[in-house]
Amino acid sequence: MSRIEINELCVSFGRNPVLKNISLSIPDRQIICIIGPSGCGKTTLLKSLNRLLDLNEDVSITGDVRVDGQSIYQSRLDVTALRKKVGFLPQRPYPLPMSIYDNVAFGPRIHGLDGLNALSGGKAGSPAAGAKTSRKDKDRLVEHYLTLAGLWDEVKDRLSEPAAKLSIGQQQRLALARVLSIEPEVILADEATSALDPISARLVENQFRLLKKDYTIILVTHILRQARRLGDYIVFLYMGDLVEHKPAAEFFGDPSDEKTKAYVNGDIS
């Protein structure tokens, strides 16, 4: 299981510092909620964990992030392998420009996953790479992940339609299925329920609860109540500073920082 260690991480866009000296050790097989007001750097922190930040051109990153003891910012690292291990669910879902079916099948195809682990229910062992997957297996794979994301029933009759035709909420669950399909060990979810109605949001939340026995889930959320409902461990960011982080019960029961108290009470937002 992956352990993530963040060490004195600083991130700035141009001259504008966005994350200031963050050090944090993330517990595994839990739901970690990152909370904080808009613009405080939650998305940035999340993206720094699988090197999606590198895509910005004027970004500068110092400090270190270690996944399984390996520094992810060393230049020789295989970024694609890292991203397969640390999956990412974006704030706004952008479907791949292909059918619903292919959206889910894309990840397994490029990584040569046959999905047998998923289908046999276990997560033990590394997936056999390069094995030829028959169409039938692929169908079962797609169904499996779509079901896991709670989308199967809605789309099972229109799998060959372009994914862009789905509603935003459906696209978000499709993105979840897509992430699950690469069998990551950590899931980074950036407000994964922000576009969902309360009922589908609960569906996804329940999904996360089930998944946490196999995955480490790092969840950014705006909604305090969601953090209370789901979080095992809470990380509070404020204007780029890591203000406080501790297990959820402690965090909400006994916040030590003034800012945390104010935020938890809804005085700053």
Binding site: L52, L55, T80, R83, F88, P90, R92, L96, F106, H111
Partner: peptide
């Protein structure tokens, strides 16, 4: 950019992202 991210985040290489997305 986010369209690229959705492929890259799945561990696609840059060229795969270009080719498929």
């Amino acid at each position: 950019g986010p369209f690229r991210e959705s492929a890259l985040a799945l561990g696609a290489t840059k060229w795969e992202t270009v080719k498929y997305v």
